[in-house]
Amino acid sequence: MRKFTQLDGLVAPLDRANVDTDAIIPKQFLKSIKRSGFGPNLFDEWRYLDHGEPGMDHAKRTPNPNFVLNQPRYEGAAILLTRDNFGCGSSREHAPWALEDFGLRALIGVSFADIFFNNCFKNGLLPIRLSKPEVDELFAQTLQQPGYRLRIDLKAQTVTRPDGKVLRFEVEAFRKHCLLDGLDEIGLTLRHADKIREFEARRRFEQPWLFA
């Protein structure tokens, strides 16, 4: 997994609550058997005026000029600013894959849906929860100041605004550790293989009907 330590990135504001994973990456793109290449179809129904299907030439499609990520001032954004309950709905990991493939490395919002939140950490994408007033201020500043950037430091658990104000965020110690070092979780878990076998043997004895 890709490490996440620090990031100095351009911010794009997506001013909506309850952005669901169907909106992040519509179902027709879930037919792929790969885990890359979803970026061009991120927010497909909002980003393009025509209907998208897998295999289309994106250069020939009609972008929706009103959609925030199509506005020139947000080109190259690495941080997406959003509201409450981002990533709700379907568990599709294609959502963080698409966000990451598009070039986003961090998300800042008031809250995230559980499964989506988990999936982000597996893909080097950092979801940051801040308070509503903090998020409101970030929206206001992003809209007012073209080229608005934020500095994120995972180790220090801080987001630093251009005016120098530092916002602290919470992240679970274990997730932070994995993300800072880009650790392979399967490899980490397999260090406990003996414990898993022991647990399994006990379970097989106590509840044999769970084992074929």
Binding site: R35, S91, I115, N119, E185, T189
Partner: peptide, 9 residues
């Protein structure tokens, strides 16, 4: 529900 990385895990 879990994501695909967790499915693999």
């Amino acid at each position: 529900g879990i994501g695909t990385s967790e499915v693999e895990h």
